[in-house]
Design a protein around this nucleic acid. Structure first.
Lengths: 256, 256
DNA sequence: CTAAACTGTGTACACCGTACGGGATTCCTG
DNA sequence: CAGGAATCCCGTACGGTGTACACAGTTTAG
């Protein structure tokens, strides 16, 4: 399971932190660390052992520093998680002068997010940033996506909805995929071993008679493929649907 | 933020628990509780205060019982979270004799999951059940969805992918929506108050010059609507895309 | 030189999940 | 009916967590 909190109290403080909008202090000793170093250490730790194993003490230990020193740079664990999230969201490159069609741009956007989710499986278990936590990473994402769907006849409202459609899909399937990975990891049994142990139980409960369709699909082996392959398929269908809307708008008609 | 673990070690044990596949004990005192009562109490607690505030001690207290008594019915917190998830997934009714088109069936399926996510915002912060944790709720969901897309010319593999497309979308947007709600709640400030505090900061960092498209959409007010309205829009586009595939298959052609 | 601002951190507290062991209760067997 | 076995209930305890707080050390402004 996975569920932590995000978005602590003070919005202004969190935003300032996300944008590193704090001028260096005039007086006092030179800081031995930085927000970025703390965030980077936390990300590395999460990549290695997952978010549940991430603790302030471990981050501090990795940086060779007392636990409480972290609180000089970060107000608390929740804020740190936000910073980690926005940081990895900024990883993929989204060229400002992208020249392709709206569809190609949305594909790039979707694949960029997916790459992040594959590289850092823990991102899907964190809250989405959204408006409330708009850091540089999330803002760059949004700008690119909005530009992709602008100037093709959609209303601002429809632009937002289309982007949410793509973002939601990517996020959802990434979570579905990621859980399978983490589940096998922290249960200590690998996929094949689990399958061996579980099959008799599944056969017992999911009888052919009560769930005929599901059983048929299962028996066909369609569940056994790597779930990753379905991503491009779903994205293509989804963009087909958007394309229909765009075509209709181009002809000056309303959808439906 | 939100991230807990799911899927503890013993698969057979977890499956047996999900399906309540344990005959009542022959000897020993009458159980004062039941798995269902424990799960119900935990769900009520999560609905009220969110998953992060859910602890074994609180669940026990609500049931008027010692903390460790819970472990008679549930092996641990992870398993409890799994049980909670499968339990709420089973809430919406999915008629076995549904008579509509594949599209209507998928809409029902999607809206059922969405209703669960709105009623229990914490579900999106838990891992997806998937194959590894197929309880009665997840199985019923899958059976209905698979039946919806069966017999319309799709391969088993495509059926799985289409269902994953819908499930992924619903899950993704639900998470995007839910986080906004929980963020406002546990930050202690409501949406309007937050907006007031954050706007100057946002104006400062997200300048019109650096993010022109995003800024334009923002200035249009398209972000300020209830995010819920976008759900049906996205679902319609998505199903349009699936429809195109189905139509092409009905004509005996390959897509693309 | 003094004072203010800042960094670094050790200690302490409340809370968490749960291993362990023991007492109470009930049924099956003889 | 006796006794053992199975099962329940749960108090205690341990190692872990996030972080409030007090205080020491460092740097610079005035």
């Amino acid at each position: 399971m996975a569920a932590e909190k995000t978005g602590r109290s003070d919005p202004a403080r969190t935003l300032a932190l996300l944008w590193r909008g704090k001028e260096p202090p005039a007086r006092g000793p030179k800081p031995g660390l930085s927000v970025d170093r703390v965030v980077a250490a936390a990300i590395a730790l999460a990549d290695e052992s997952g978010v549940p194993a991430l603790s302030m003490r471990k981050v501090a230990e990795r940086l060779g520093v007392g636990t409480m020193s972290l609180y000089t740079y970060v107000p608390g664990k929740d804020e740190l998680l936000n910073l980690m999230l926005d940081s990895v969201l900024a990883e993929p490159e989204r060229p400002a002068d992208f020249a392709g069609t709206w569809r190609e741009a949305l594909e790039l956007h979707a694949r960029a997010d997916r790459a992040v989710a594959l590289r850092h499986p823990w991102v899907v278990s964190l809250s989405t940033p959204g408006l409330m936590l708009m850091g540089p990473g999330e803002t760059a994402r949004s700008e690119f996506a909005m530009k992709a769907v602008s100037g093709i006849g959609l209303s601002p409202r429809e632009m937002v909805d289309v982007v949410n459609l793509v973002d939601g899909y990517v996020r959802g399937v990434a979570q579905i995929n990621a859980d399978l990975g983490t589940a096998t990891r922290d249960s200590g049994v690998d996929y094949e071993e689990w399958w061996e142990q579980a099959t008799p139980m599944l056969e017992r409960f999911i009888q052919q008679s009560r769930y005929p369709t599901l059983y048929g699909v299962w028996a066909s082996g369609a569940f056994e493929v790597a779930p990753d392959e379905g991503f491009e398929f779903g994205l293509a269908r989804l963009l087909d649907g958007v394309e229909r809307l765009v075509d209709e708008r181009a002809l000056g008609r309303q959808p439906e």
